[in-house]
Design a protein around this nucleic acid. Structure first.
Length: 635
RNA sequence: GCUGGCGUAGCUCAGUCGGUAGAGCUGCUGAUUUGUAAUCAGCCGGUCGGGGGUUCGAGUCCCUUCGCCAGCUCCA
């Protein structure tokens, strides 16, 4: 048979040759790196015999597909070790992740970290034996019998939902239901580490039993494994909860779980972000409103929140009347709109609101600033005619991107979420709304993923996601198109024809939650904020107390110039004061000794960059003002 | 909410087998007057998350409750 290779070459091989044999004949050295093959675009085992002409490619750990094979086989190796060590276990599923793998296992006894060590040791033994990993293709019936005999009820359940023609992989006594491909033998898995242990519902369903999920990672070389663990350690250092405490930005207290207490430095961060946000919104034709936090339950019944969002809401009852604490700002926006009589000439109307909303979250879902129970949405509701939808949304996408860029976020994932099960509005309305969002995304040339069934209950949405330090992705911005609320609240505008028409409503947030956004911002910059955001922009460090008066003078001049400046007047050595300022991540340190005081100068030291030499005070002020003005990432 | 883990001084953490709670940093006082990442000395600081129990005796063992962490589920 004739085999074509990716490099353009081709060769003749006898029928039944495996990719491994072909590679060995062609390029013996490369067999060490190959983990799987791709035949006519489909990934297969290196030991799968070929029987027809084909295009052949080899996958290594450097390909994401090859990495998945490596991790997937690692998961099998781990499962094999667990089965050998703990009788009576049942396997769930065990896929590869981006840079790790896991296996969900039903274990009669709870595993402990010590168990992980035992499992690791056993994995090492099995790997050393280089146990061949073999594929077998079975009928569904045969597979069900096989797993039933082995007491693998979970696998049988999976099989019952699968199509005819399945494959299993066997290594020694261990058999697993799996599509593959896999490594040729367990000896390929050389460097691995089991990372953590957690519960996970079987098939992600709260009502099903909880399995134990074991996470691990594996690499071909020890250096790569070390590097992975080091990166993980580093990521922990930039965790916003840790930095928030160290940098004195905010605190949490059991008296109000899930709601941050902002400290003075944290407030500066929030204020700077809001100041910029206001400038941008004014420039883009928004007007700001401010509405109540506690509103009558009658309103929430009318809006549909009572029926569709009640589990997440807080309620209050006074003087025999029921109130709800707002989980969203939209109903208030609608009430404001209704106080006006708008003509088509007045639209679009863009009402922005920094609204404090409360949403009840189950205790286990809270996470620092990123997942809280009370947060400030940088909300806005745009009321427009149906014809204006596309332009509005395309412009909005541009605004979102510009604002993210200013904060240094360049890696943003975009999703289009469509009608959920629990929703209001007719099928026709949903179809129109979804089509409108799709065409706006197309026009804006924004690559995006589809997230079916994840829209808001009143309309589909475009979501913007940002990753945290540990690689978890969080929704920030959102653009939601809503034909239903205007209907429910009977909004109107007067058209060119003199008749009453119904406007369309766009709900949108860019930062999403101020709290979440600041949390992600802290992690993004690892606390090293650009000058315009830094809570303390400069600290003046006099060498002896002879310069105190001069230092205070410089500090006050800089403050009058609009800069956030402190002076460290403690009787400490320079090295100590610098160390403190560096640890507190103050971007600019200004050392003043006798020489500087004499010449109206300061010695400028930049955080992480060291001494920049003496400069006139006015020059430093101008330099810093410019960096703030331009929102420079670096001074 | 669920599964598992963790709560000791303001912070980071020790505390063995159940036998009188410890260190460093911070803070305070004093000395020191310092030139680019830790000057020295002394002092203060604790209902061991809360409540209950076992015990002659509990930071340590048991129950319960609150909070936090990882993951699951759910969401900005």
């Amino acid at each position: 048979m004739n085999i074509k290779f990716k490099d353009g070459s081709q060769g003749q091989y006898s029928d039944g040759a495996t990719p491994f044999e072909i590679l060995k004949a062609k390029e013996p050295e490369a067999t060490k790196r190959a983990v799987a093959a791709r035949v006519n675009g489909q990934s297969v085992d290196l030991w799968r015999p070929l029987h027809a002409d084909a295009e052949l490619e080899f996958l290594t750990f450097d390909d994401s597909e090859g990495r998945d094979v490596y991790r997937h086989s690692s998961a099998h190796l781990m499962a094999q070790a667990v089965r050998e060590l703990y009788p009576g276990v049942q396997l769930g599923i065990g896929p590869a992740l981006e840079d790790s793998f896991y296996y969900d296992i039903l274990v009669p006894e709870f595993l402990t970290p010590e168990d992980l060590e035992k499992i690791e040791t056993r994995m090492g033994e099995i790997a050393k034996r280089k146990v061949p990993i073999q594929r077998r293709e079975l009928s569904r019936e045969e597979a069900i019998t096989l797993f039933q005999e082995r007491g693998e009820v979970l696998k049988v359940e999976l099989l019952q939902e699968m199509e005819e023609g399945v494959s299993v992989y066997q290594q020694g006594d261990f058999v697993d239901l799996c599509r593959g491909p896999h490594l040729p033998n367990t000896g390929y898995i050389k460097n691995f580490k089991l990372l953590s242990l957690a519960g996970a519902y079987w098939r992600g369903d709260e009502s099903r039993p909880m399995l134990q999920r074991i996470y691990g990672t594996s690499y071909p070389t020890a250096e790569q494994l070390e590097e992975h663990l080091r990166r993980h350690e580093e990521a922990k250092q930039r965790d916003h909860r840790r930095l928030g405490k160290n940098l004195d930005l905010f605190s949490f207290h059991p008296e109000a779980p899930g709601t941050p207490f902002w400290h003075p430095k944290g407030v500066i961060l929030v204020d700077q972000a809001v100041k910029y946000w206001r400038e941008m919104h004014t420039a883009h034709g928004y007007q700001e409103i401010r509405t109540p936090v506690v509103l009558s339950d009658v309103l929430w019944r009318q809006s549909g929140h009572y029926d569709h969002y009640r589990e997440n809401m807080y309620f209050s009852r006074v003087e025999d009347r029921d109130y709800a604490i707002k989980p969203m700002n939209c109903p208030s926006g609608l009430l404001v709109y209704k106080t006006y009589q708008f003509s088509y000439r007045d639209l679009p109307q863009r009402f922005a609101e920094l609204g404090l909303v409360h949403r009840f979250e189950k205790s286990g879902e809270l996470h620092g600033l990123i997942r809280v129970r009370a947060f400030t949405q940088d909300d806005a509701h745009i009321f427009c005619t149906p014809e204006q939808i596309e332009t509005e949304i395309v412009n909005l996408i541009g605004l979102v991107q510009e604002i993210y860029r200013t904060f240094g976020f360049t890696e943003v994932r975009v999703e289009l979420s469509t009608q959920p099960e629990n929703s209001i509005g007719s099928a026709e309305i949903w179809r129109r709304a979804e089509a409108a969002l799709e065409s706006a995304l197309k026009k804006a040339e924004l690559p995006h993923e589809l997230n079916p069934g994840e829209g808001a209950f009143y309309g589909p949405k475009i979501d913007f996601h940002i990753r945290d330090s540990l690689g978890r992705s969080w929704q920030c911005g959102t653009i939601q198109l809503d034909f239903s609320m205007p209907e429910r609240f009977e909004l109107e505008y007067i058209g060119a024809d003199g008749e009453r028409h119904r406007p369309v409503m766009i709900h949108r947030a860019i930062l999403g939650s101020l709290e979440r956004f600041i949390g992600l911002l802290i992690e993004h910059y690892a606390g090293d904020f650009p000058l315009w955001l830094a809570p303390v922009q400069a600290r003046i460090l006099p060498i002896t107390d002879k310069q105190h008066e001069y230092a205070i003078g410089v500090r006050d001049r800089m403050r009058k110039a609009g800069l956030r400046v402190e002076a460290d007047l403690r009787s400490e050595k320079m090295g100590y004061k610098i160390r403190q300022a560096e640890l507190e991540k103050v971007p600019v340190m200004l050392v003043v000794g006798g020489r500087e005081a004499e010449a109206d100068q300061v010695s400028m030291r930049l955080k992480g960059q060291g001494d920049q030499g003496a400069k006139p005070v006015n020059e430093v002020i101008t330099l810093m003002q410019n960096a703030v003005e331009r929102k420079q990432q670096q001074l």
